[in-house]
Nucleic acid binder design. Structure first.
Length: 875
RNA sequence: GGGCGCGUAGCUCAGUUGGUUAGAGCGCCUGCUUCACACGCAGGAGGCCCGGGGUUCGAGUCCCUGCGCGCCCACCA
């Protein structure tokens, strides 16, 4: 029954982690009549390894989920992973390359097999790590975006949207990543300001000696120019409209056109138009019906259409073009210029805008519904500040390019007939062309990974089948995720959920902050400042890391992760451990067996029980009130701090200390023990969502059945009737007397072991407590105190309600004098400000009576205290 | 170019709807091996709440402005 002397979480955390999974206690059941709380995990990449961001997210989810479960809700936390198209393909292709194999040589089928094999062997690291960390999810419902069921959902969605005209195929300018060799979406191309140049190039006007000087950041695209544009209001060049310029290096003549794209204020006011390699130019080209001359290919190399530059990489070509222009005297000048480069999110390669035939989702109408959902609070976003960002993005949304030139992913369910150009989009694989019965060839591309994760809240529940799970758990109650995937994922889920299900995918979205290192830096592999959660949990315990993350997790703020915070959290766990150990030691001494109240929810000490028992239950009740409110509103930092304060500074510091007086050898299980053990058990339940391992361990040591779990008990609830004002008042006075005595001892520099004798004066309440709690006061402050007339001077300590005096040699008074003088100064300030307010008629007229009364009461207190201090100092 | 957030004790940060003596953890100082815990106990020092203006009886909290940071979005060469 004894607890081990040292708190070593490593001794029991793995055991519980394993048991929570193997026992299947977190398997979600359909329980009619019970409130449902369902939540799907933001599926981590199958290639991923758990980092602190995951740990924070999973901790917040786990706290919330455990809390709901203890509240008696029917809880589902569905785990799973994302196949992560590009990322996974890259990982496996790289591994193959290390063996000297080019993945393309393998062929599609063989490559896909290789990826599946890789997944089986080394994918899904994160799921195993989550088990270690005790995530209380329902592993029987684990899903993967490429599962057969989810793939069917993807296909169903694609076909449906296609049939509604919301998915279309077309030739447009897309972001092309020459590194990944695929089109990517706008979101996947990230802007980065980079030092570059603005080259000013002379284009000779045909039939004239004049030159038009054109400014460009990409001289190599000159090879594909179709025109130069001037502004219709720009009188400098108006006379040239309708003419032509000679395109340098290419020996072509191109027209001079009028277009608003040319800004008279920028550069020279003349802009070159390259419809095939720039989005603006593409649009301008459409307006003026200009030829789209592609000169850069999908490898970012110059094509034969680029003349003598063919075969050069775009950067090499740039260098050569500039050199050649210079040699020809056509380089007017070069300015330094900050360019906004688009780079591939995945491989950081500079994105090349290319015209390409791709599949798109038409987003305008979907976005409108997503905006309305948030607007009408069918989806609540917390913190609310994100709503603005949400709306901003939704209002400016552009169609979503969803086809990817990859092999790993959901293949696009579209087939082409080469004979008659028919396109077949179908739920089942067609065998031949519906028009001409000719052979069909399936689209080679796969879908953007985010297309399948966009279906996650319902595809994981069995949709398109109307499963029991779907009926029971959709819409999900809450989504907890990071802002980095607000658009990639949350926005897409909202749009696709509303479209496919006719109902939002989640009622609430809580956006958590970023985990940063001790220097407030983002954790990143390249910076080398990542803290591995598993290393950290091994060192200090999972509970300590959870607590450390939660204490800093205020809504709307980033979380600074420091080892100091983990260490102090471990200290907290250690404190709880030792409090338990102390209880067990005394239980043995008193002949008490492990015991738990049968009626945990209603257990209360008797009305005539010792005041500390009634007091701690009252405090527990207040803590429960705050905990429930805090977790419900995602104020995890408050929840963590609240239970910390209660357990350490109320339960341990005061309650256990007072209880020491009641341990009677051989007493057996009496009411004193029942009260103590009942409140300890409740406190464990209160703490459980935050520190699941420690609480499960101690709860079992308290005598829980082997097959029971604290996580399946009930969460302490607030009941206003449980507030015990008499007990709060009495213990409050006791604390003040004890503190006053300790202050005197510290001020006077007295030996901590020297017993003190004192007198106390005050009202009847105070004297009653001083008399009734004399043993406790002696124990906690080493002071024997009696009621009596206290001297005005000497070693006295006063509050508004009482004066405590002890007998000491006069020579030791100096420190106390300094303290009193300081207090007097503060009191005088307070009195002045209180009096000023109370003499202000406007204040009295406008401030609520409650505020005025409280100031009056305070002023009276100040004045009593000041009088006492003045008397003391006079002596 | 648009939008968002932050600036509070030496450090990292709390501070829900404005209510008058601004809190915590760590660090620091003093004392303590008090029969669970030195991962501890008791006590303490430390703050023009970034500057300026305004609203209000009352502002760390609301508004404007300046300064200093950080982030997101964006097809101007």
């Amino acid at each position: 029954m004894q607890l081990e002397k040292i708190y070593e979480p490593g001794r029991f955390e793995p055991r519980w982690a394993q048991w929570w999974v193997e026992s299947g206690i977190y398997h979600a059941k359909h329980e009619p009549g019970k409130p449902v709380f369902s939540l799907v995990i933001p599926p981590p990449n199958v290639t991923g390894v758990l980092h602190m961001g995951h740990m924070l997210e999973h901790t917040e989810i786990d706290v919330t989920v455990r809390w709901h479960r203890m509240r008696g809700d029917c809880v589902l936390w569905l785990p799973g992973m994302d196949h992560a198209g590009i990322a996974t393909q890259m990982v496996v292709a790289r591994q193959l390359a290390e063996q000297g194999i080019n993945f393309r040589d393998l062929g599609r089928e063989k490559f896909e097999e290789t990826v599946w094999k890789w997944k089986a062997e080394s994918g899904g690291m994160i799921m195993r790590q989550m088990v270690q960390l005790g995530a209380s999810c329902d592993w029987s419902r684990e899903r993967f975006t490429l599962d057969a069921g989810l793939s069917r959902a993807v296909r169903e969605t694609f076909v449906r949207l296609y049939e509604k005209g919301l998915i279309y195929r077309g030739e447009y300018m897309v972001n092309w990543c020459p590194g990944c060799k695929t089109a990517i979406s706008d979101l996947e191309s990230q802007h980065e300001e980079t030092a570059g140049h603005l080259w000013h190039i002379r284009y000779k006007v045909v039939g004239s000696d004049r030159y038009l000087v054109v400014a460009t950041t990409r001289p190599e695209t000159l090879l594909g120019d179709s025109a130069v544009a001037i502004n219709a209001n720009d009188e400098r060049y108006l006379d040239l409209h309708g003419g032509k310029v000679h395109l340098p290096l290419m020996d072509r003549e191109i027209p001079i056109i009028l277009d608003d794209l040319a800004d008279p204020e920028f550069g020279t006011g003349v802009v070159k138009i390259t419809p095939a390699h720039d989005l603006n130019d593409f649009e301008a080209g459409k307006r003026h019906n200009l030829p789209r001359l592609q000169v850069i290919d999908t490898n970012a190399q110059i094509m034969p259409s680029g003349g003598k530059y063919a075969g050069l990489d775009r950067m090499a070509a740039r260098k050569r073009v500039v050199e050649d222009l210079q040699a020809l005297g056509l380089l007017d000048r070069v300015e330094n210029y900050v360019v906004n480069l688009s780079k591939c999110q995945r491989c950081k390669t500079i994105v090349e805008p290319l015209i390409s035939k791709q599949w798109f989702v038409s987003t305008k109408s979907l976005a409108a519904k997503a905006i309305a959902a948030v607007d009408e609070k069918r989806i609540e976003i917390v913190p609310e500040a994100w709503v603005k960002t949400w709306n901003e993005w939704m209002h400016n949304i552009r169609d979503w390019c969803i086809s990817r030139q990859l092999w790993w992913g959901h293949r696009i369910p579209a087939w082409y007939c080469d004979a008659c150009d028919e396109v077949v989009v179908s739920r089942t694989d067609p065998t031949s062309c519906l028009q001409c019965a000719g052979p069909l060839r399936q689209d080679a591309d796969v879908l953007d990974t985010w297309f399948s994760s966009g279906l996650w809240p319902f595809s994981t529940l069995g949709w398109p089948d109307q499963t029991e799970d779907l009926k029971h758990f959709y819409p999900t109650s809450l989504l907890i995720t990071g802002f980095d995937i607000l658009f990639f994922w949350v926005a897409r889920m909202a749009m696709l959920g509303i479209e496919c299900m006719g109902e939002v995918p989640f009622r609430q979205v809580y956006i958590h902050g970023l985990v940063r290192d001790a220097d407030k830096q983002k954790m990143s592999k390249t910076k080398g400042n990542v803290v591995d959660p598993l290393v950290e949990t091994e060192k200090n315990g999972t509970d300590a890391v959870r607590m450390a993350l939660l204490t800093g997790a205020a809504p709307g703020t980033d979380i600074v992760f420091t080892s100091e915070r983990v260490e102090s959290s471990r200290s907290f766990a250690n404190k709880i451990w030792n409090a338990a150990r102390f209880l067990f030691m005394n239980m043995e001494r008193c002949g008490v067996d492990p015991w738990m109240a049968a009626d945990v929810n209603t257990y209360l000490p008797a009305a005539d029980a010792p005041v500390e028992d009634r007091w701690i239950f009252s405090r527990l009740n207040e803590c429960a009130k705050e905990m429930n409110r805090a977790i419900e509103t995602f104020r995890y930092h408050e929840a963590a701090q609240c239970v910390w304060r209660f357990f350490w500074h109320e339960f341990c510091d005061w309650y256990v200390e007072l209880k020491k007086l009641r341990f009677v050898e051989g007493s057996g299980l009496n009411d004193d023990w029942r009260n103590l053990l009942a409140v300890f058990e409740s406190a464990l339940r209160l703490l459980h969502p935050v520190m699941p391992f420690l609480t499960e361990e101690l709860w079992h040591r308290l005598g829980a059945a082997d097959n029971a779990s604290i996580s399946l008990t009930s969460y302490p609830q607030f009941d206003p009737a449980r507030f015990d004002s008499a007990a709060e008042r009495e213990i409050g006075i006791l604390q003040e007397i004890v503190t006053a005595a300790r202050n005197l001892r510290a001020d006077l520099g007295l030996d901590p072991k020297q017993p003190l004798e004192g007198l106390i004066s005050g009202n009847a309440d105070i004297l009653a407590v001083a008399a009734g709690q004399s043993v406790a006061i002696q124990r906690l402050a080493g002071l024997t105190v009696q009621a009596g007339e206290t001297p005005k001077t000497g070693a006295v300590r006063s509050t508004a309600e009482f004066t405590l005096a002890i007998n000491v040699p006069a020579g030791q008074m100096e420190a106390q004098r300094r303290r009193l003088e300081k207090e007097r100064e503060q009191l005088e300030k307070n009195i002045v400000s209180s009096r000023r307010q109370l003499s202000d008629d406007v204040f009295l007229g406008k401030a609520p009576a409650k505020v005025v009364d409280s100031i009056r009461a305070k002023l009276a207190d100040y004045e009593v205290q000041l009088a006492k201090i003045n008397e003391s100092l006079a002596g």
